[in-house]
Design a protein around this nucleic acid. Sequence first.
RNA 1: GGCCCCAUCGUCUAACGGCUAGGACACCAGGUUUUCAUCCUGGUAAUCGGGGUUCGAUUCCCCGUGGGGUCACCA
Length: 495
Amino acid sequence: MISSSNLPPAANRGASQPRPIRTRMAPSPTGTYHVGNLATLLKNYAWAKHHGGRFILRLEDTDQRREVAGAAEQIMEVIRLYGLDWDEGPDKGGPYQPYRQSERLEIYRGYVDQLIDQGHAYYCFATSQELAEMRQDQQRRGLPPRYDGRYRDLPLAEARARVADGQPYVVRLKVPLDQRIAFTDLVRGKIEVSSADIDDQVILKSDGFPTYHLASVVDDHLMDISHVLRGEEWISSTPKHVVLYRALGWQPPVYAHLPVFLNPDGKGKMSKRNGQVSAQGFLDQGYLPEAMLNFLMILGWAHPEETEVLSLAEYVRCFDPADVSAKSVVFDLGKLNWLNGIYIRRLSADQLLERLRPFVPGDAPQDKLSDYLELVKDRLVKLNDFEALTAFWYRPVRHQADQLLKKSSAEQVVSQLKTTSQGLAAVTPANWHAEQIETVVRKLQLNNHWSKRQYFMLVRYAVTGQTATPPLFETMAVLGKSETLARLNQAQQVV
RNA sequence: GGCCCCAUCGUCUAACGGCUAGGACACCAGGUUUUCAUCCUGGUAAUCGGGGUUCGAUUCCCCGUGGGGUCACCA
């Protein structure tokens, strides 16, 4: 055998099969799915697909108290609404099932016992109240709140006696006293902390459920997860996980900690208090899923050619977690709106109409929708703008006298409106087209030497009750002859 | 407060240690136009501060400052 002692360990494995790339997203069914989680999911998905690997969905339902009925289904639903999917998961199974942590309790229990037997974990009998008091006391004295290790050195035999006696307990990880704990983050390089700064984490709760720390480490290992891409807020937990991997004698996955999203005002982690955060909520507002995904792609990451509008396939082709920004990023709604507009305008009339269905108000006439859409398409930022943009066509308008009289006298306005009504009344219903209306109205404007600006705006406001509308003649054509005339008359009455 | 992470236009970013620091959004101005929008053209705008290393720092190192994250029987 050739000596390879001066080669790094990885070199020794060079000849063997490369490890398959497997990533995961592990949502907790405690509420609605956050866009930050969706962005993380997208990156995990892309990285697995980039390598032809597999993307796993795992349910972290280890907190019985916070679990919300139906949340798991909603989360899976919304992920699919965004056009993403997983290769293995709670609903479709897979070679490493089950993918629901509440169904894996015996597995965790086995490793907890092993850790206790090997001296890497211990029973702790401190009550929640006791711990709360301890923390209060520490804070009062200006000390960092920490577990003080009061049961760390209780002889195992005694602890087991107490357990047998029926005393409630948790199991804590026995973190080494003073070691350097290091790991490599794909985004930031080496991160190192002292184990002295790590608390003895609870790994098994008194209800027999594992905590996140234990469950995720065990599952990531057992499910052969190669890369863990997760939010930056996990950086400080990662050393705990590294300690656990060591205690269990396993190799940690490759980590990449992704930037957190900051509120649009730039202050603090994006939160419900400061606006929309739920992935479903953005869809409900009329953001297109593909626009959202595109936005999440370029938030904190740039395409090699700086392309900003790109498909999921292109993203999968180019994405590399090492290229992700290390700094937290502001969730810039302005840019999202811009992208959404682009994606809306890219849709065909039929496609757009289909997407619009849920946003069409009940009182909008179905047979006119495509006419409206034609005129309003360039003005839609979000699909739910449709109602505000089109309501004047099918709902009564109210005129403000001062708006009608803004640019000229009452006599002038009445005369203009009356003349216009008469002129348009002469147009036969069969000829009620934008071109014909335009011919009539333009002729009136020229013959009477009216200001084009003033006159057109007057007619616009009289007919729609608004000062900003789609092109006037098309708008009147879609509105119909009788309604147009009725509104011109109504405006006269107001003056 | 302890620990950790981060720092290029307002925002998201690009720039083997080597150009007038580039692009996009937003903003402003102009064009098209009956308004609004779309579309086109142009413009304002940045390397946090101080020390090093170097012929040369946006880039590497240190300190400061600022921002963020985290310190649960939640994930």
